[in-house]
């Protein structure tokens, strides 16, 4: 199964929700980046990335999320992240990305923050 099949896209009003069910090492991060780029090209402005089923994330994947969040903000949108396991939170904190991307405990709270 490719990592793309483990990334599903849902909608809640004008918000796109990406639910990831695979660990985000460089291989899967490349697919995540493609999915995010596709949303950018469709002029989608609001994105929530649900990481509740992700046990590992590397700096490449964090960088992809940070990059897209920054680009969405330039056009008035944003990318918010939710449901991080403790070790993922630690990786975001170490890199400093938690000061750049908004992180929420649940998908509902991330959606409500838009």
């Amino acid at each position: 199964m490719s990592s793309t099949e483990l990334m599903t896209l849902r909608e809640n009003a004008d918000i796109k929700i990406i639910e990831i069910k695979t660990d985000l090492s460089s291989y899967a991060a490349s697919d995540l980046r493609k999915m995010l780029e596709s949303l950018l090209s469709q002029k989608i402005e609001k994105v929530v990335v649900n990481l509740s089923e992700v046990n590992h994330i590397n700096s490449t994947a964090v960088g992809a999320l940070v990059g897209v969040a920054k680009r969405l903000r330039q056009t008035g949108g944003d990318l918010k992240i939710c449901a991080l396991a403790d070790n993922l939170t630690r990786t975001f904190n170490l890199i400093g990305a938690s000061s750049v991307v908004e992180i929420y405990e649940s998908e509902e709270s991330a959606i409500a923050a838009f």
């Binding site: 170490l94 890199i95 400093g96 750049v100």
Partner: peptide, 13 residues
């Protein structure tokens, strides 16, 4: 390296 940069975090980690 900065928190805003997309790359350059690997060696730091």
């Amino acid at each position: 390296r900065s928190p805003c940069s997309e790359g350059g975090h690997g060696i730091f980690l």
